[in-house]
C-alpha cells in the first residue's frame, strides 16, 4: 500500500519504466566534469522554464543546455533504439542471441564512417556515410536472404553474417590504408562509440530515423509474437510473413542506423537489454518492446554519465556498456532466476 493506493509489483515496474528515462535525462544534467553546483543547475533549468533571467553565468547555460542536455537526449534515443531493435530482431529471428546488428547494420555503418574519415579527413560526412552504408548492408543481407524468392529466416541470418564479415574486412582495409597519425585514431575512436560533442542539431538529424523506427516497432510489436512462431505457423495464423518481416526489418534498421551514425558502434545494449526486459516483464512483445525501449534509454544515459566522471579522460561507451552491463546482468539472472528461461 502506497498513498492509500494498492500498487502491485507489476504496476510499480511499469511506472518505473515510464518515468525512468525522464529521471535519467534530468539527473545527467547535474553530472559532468565541469563543477556546477546543484543550485546553479536548478537555477538554469528554472530560468529556462519560466523565461526569467537568473544571474547565473552564461557559460553555465551553455554547458547545461547545449552540451549536457542534447547529450542526454541523444543518449536516451540511442540506447532505446538499439534495445528496441535488438528485441524486435530476437523475436523476428526466433533467436535470443541476435542483436540489433544481426543484419550487418553496425559493420556497414562502421565502414561508412571509416570511409568518410578516409576520404575527407574530417568527421563532417560521417553521419551521412554511416547511415547510408548501414542501410545498404541490411538491404544486401535482405537480398541474399531472398534467394529462394521468399524470406526464409535462416537465410536472412546467413545473409547478415556474410555481409557483416565483408564490411568488417573493408573496415580493416581502410584502417590499413588510413593515415596512422590523424585518420586512424579518429576511425578507431569512432568505432568504439561515444556520445561526446553532440549538439541539438544532431537530435534533429539522427533523431528522425530513430523516432520513426521506434514508433513503427511499437505499433507492430504484437505481430512480432506471431512471427516468432516461425514462418509456417505465422502464415497459417493469418500473417503475411514476407511483408511484415520486410517492414519490421525496415523500422529496426532505421532506428539502429540512426543510433549508430551519431554514437558509433555500441555493442551489448541491443543484445542484453531485451533479456533484462524479459526477466522483468516476460516474453510478450506487446510489453517487452516498450520495456526494452525504456531500459535501453536509462542504461545508456547511466553508462555515459559514468564514462565521463570515472576518469580524467572519457572512457569510450562501447567499452563501458559491457563492463557495467555484464555484472548487472549476472546479478539480475541470480535474483530473478531468469524468469522462465
Amino acid at each position: 500500500m502506497l498513498l492509500g493506493v494498492n500498487i502491485t509489483r507489476k504496476k510499480l515496474v511499469y511506472i518505473l519504466l515510464i518515468i525512468g528515462p525522464l529521471v535519467c535525462v534530468v539527473a545527467s544534467l547535474f553530472i559532468g566534469r565541469y563543477p556546477i553546483t546543484i543550485a546553479d543547475v536548478t537555477g538554469v533549468l528554472w530560468s529556462k522554464l519560466t523565461q526569467n533571467p537568473s544571474g547565473i553565468p552564461e557559460k553555465y547555460y551553455a554547458i547545461i543546455w547545449e552540451i549536457r542536455m542534447p547529450r542526454a537526449i541523444v543518449g536516451a534515443l540511442v540506447g532505446g533504439s538499439l534495445a528496441i531493435s535488438g528485441a524486435a530482431f530476437q523475436g523476428l529471428f526466433r533467436n535470443p542471441l541476435v542483436s540489433s546488428g544481426i543484419l550487418g547494420v553496425s559493420s556497414g555503418a562502421g565502414f561508412g564512417a571509416a570511409l568518410a574519415i578516409l576520404l575527407f579527413s574530417s568527421t563532417s560526412y560521417v553521419y551521412l556515410f554511416s547511415f547510408v552504408f548501414g542501410g545498404v548492408a541490411v538491404f544486401l543481407s535482405y537480398i541474399i536472404g531472398r534467394v529462394y524468392n521468399t524470406t526464409l529466416t535462416i537465410m536472412l541470418v546467413l545473409g547478415g553474417v556474410i555481409v557483416s564479415s565483408i564490411f568488417s574486412a573493408l573496415i580493416s582495409f581502410i584502417k590499413y590504408v588510413a593515415d596512422p597519425y590523424n585518420q586512424l585514431p579518429t576511425i578507431v575512436f569512432w568505432l568504439m562509440g561515444s556520445l561526446a560533442s553532440l549538439q541539438f542539431k544532431d537530435i534533429f538529424i539522427a533523431g528522425v530515423p530513430m523516432i520513426v523506427g521506434i514508433i513503427g516497432l511499437i505499433a507492430l510489436r504484437w505481430k512480432i509474437n506471431v512471427l516468432s512462431m516461425g514462418d509456417k505457423e505465422a502464415r497459417t495464423l493469418g500473417i503475411n510473413t514476407a511483408l511484415y518481416k520486410a517492414i519490421i526489418i525496415a523500422f529496426a534498421t532505421l532506428a539502429t542506423a540512426g543510433a549508430v551514425c551519431v554514437s558509433g558502434i555500441i555493442g551489448w545494449v541491443g543484445l542484453v537489454i531485451p533479456h533484462i526486459g524479459r526477466m522483468l516483464v516476460g516474453n510478450d512483445n506487446k510489453v517487452l518492446i516498450p520495456t526494452s525501449l525504456s531500459l535501453g534509454a536509462c542504461f545508456l544515459i547511466i553508462v555515459d554519465n559514468l564514462g565521463r566522471v570515472i576518469s580524467g579522460s572519457e572512457v569510450p561507451l562501447g567499452i563501458l556498456t559491457a563492463l557495467v552491463g555484464g555484472p548487472f546482468f549476472i546479478y539480475l539472472l541470480k535474483t530473478t532466476k531468469g524468469g522462465g528461461w
Binding site: R94, S228, L237, N283
Partner: peptide, 14 residues
Amino acid sequence: FPYLVKEIVMMGRA
C-alpha cells in the same frame, strides 16, 4: 521464447 500459455493462444487471433 517461454511465452505464457494464454499468450500463445492469443496468437490465434492474429
